[in-house]
Simulated scan of single mutants.
Amino acid sequence: MHVAFFVLLCSSLTRYLIVHPGAPSTPWVIVLALALALLYVLGPILGPQHAGARGAAPDTAAGLWLAAVIGVWFALVILAPSFGWCAVPLYYTGLRSLRPRYSIILIALMTAIVVGAQAKLRLRYGFDPNLLFAPPAGAAVATAVFIYSQRQAERLHTVITDLVRTRRELAATERREGTLAERQRLSMEIHDTLAQGLSSQQMLLQAAERLWDSDPAAARRHIRTAESIAEHNLAEARRFVHDLAPADLAGGGGLDEALRTLADRETSGTLQVRFHQDGTPATALPERVQAALLRIAQGALANIREHADATTAALTLSHLDDQVVLDVADDGRGFDPVEKPGGVRGHGLPAMQARVRQLGGTLTIESTPGEGTVLTAAIPLVPDAVT
């Protein structure tokens, strides 16, 4: 639009000099054309910046600048009606500078000036409908296009603002969900490692205290076992801080060897734990699957030791074609899995369910009061489920 203004200004001045050589008003036309060009160039400094789009009135300097531009242009049109073509770019200047209501009034006045000047110039040729209808039509089109574009820009600005706000809210939601997920992961890790180890040590130390006078040898065995558990818990804590795999998996023997080590470690004078492997894996299990099944086995054995009052327990790892299944069975007191045991403390079963669910697997519990319990964790070996 700026380029169009200067092209029209220069062409109008050139036409005047060609058509009216040596006219008395030529110096005034040249001076006014240069003044109009200079004022237009000073527009970015003195003029308002899209005041009409914001609905705010221009300040004093901007108002004086706009009045000077229109005044100089009006004087030029009186002296040389061909400068009326510069009205079209000036329409947009008024639309950008004023509120819509006032800018429409200004455009109407400018259009009337153009029509009057052109009609006075060509009156000797007779009535020309184009002189009466073409300038108002051009002004109406220019105004409609500008107002429509401004409305579209405002809608787009609103959409972008909403989009930015939505993205911020989504990012905040994702951060909260990530925080909650990390807290859940930490709670499960702490429950399945440190909490269980501390519980075992507490039971062993209490047993040692009861046997200290009557059976010192048994008491010392309990203390040595508690010391071994403490050492193992220390290793788990260090790996937990560094976000590494469980300590039993660090040796490289795989899940089978880790479960066998776990069974040996959990075996005591009151609880016999056996491990059995059924089948061999075609490929190495993903680390997430191995860690999850090992934690589930640790949690299940902790529940058996603290709540089941069992004498034997069995860990069975079955490698099938499309899934790996871990069964943990005991001959303890059992319970009714349909009822919600509100009095049961800890987070063992919810933690197991969360681990299995994260890997796309299922956790089932079969138990009857007085007949023991069988816990089964099945995890599919589908890439989408374990990545």
Rank of each mutant, 00 (worst) to 15 (best):
D309R: 15
P286E: 11
P281G: 05
H276M: 08
T312G: 02
E257N: 05
G253Y: 04
A291I: 09
L315P: 04
A308H: 15
T283M: 10
R274F: 15
Q277S: 13
R274E: 14
A313Y: 07
R295W: 09
L326R: 03
L320H: 10
L315F: 13
R295Q: 10
H307F: 14
R274C: 12
R295M: 08
N303W: 08
R260I: 00
G251T: 11
I296D: 02
R265Y: 06
L317D: 02
L320W: 06
A310P: 10
G299T: 10
G254W: 03
A258H: 04
S268Q: 02
L315G: 08
D278M: 10
Q272T: 15
A284P: 04
H307S: 10
Q298K: 08
D278Q: 12
Q272G: 05
D322Y: 05
L249V: 10
A300W: 12
L259F: 00
L301D: 05
V273C: 08
D327A: 11
E306G: 01
E257R: 14
H276P: 03
H276C: 09
H276N: 08
D327G: 03
R305P: 01
T312C: 05
Q277Y: 00
S318R: 15
R305V: 02
G254I: 01
S268V: 03
H307T: 04
E287K: 08
Q277N: 01
T267E: 03
V273A: 07
L255V: 02
L301R: 06
A292V: 11
Q298N: 12
G251D: 13
V273L: 09
L317P: 01
Q277M: 09
L259T: 00
V325F: 03
A258E: 00
N303L: 08
A284T: 15
H307C: 13
E306Q: 14
A314F: 07
G252I: 11
R295K: 04
G254T: 02
A297N: 03
D321W: 01
R274N: 13
A284H: 09
L285K: 11
T280V: 14
G254A: 06
L255Y: 03
H319Y: 15
L249W: 09
L301I: 12
D264E: 15
Q272C: 10
R295D: 05
A314K: 10
R265D: 13
L315N: 06
L271W: 09
P286D: 14
A302S: 13
I304C: 10
A297V: 05
A300R: 08
F275T: 02
T267M: 05
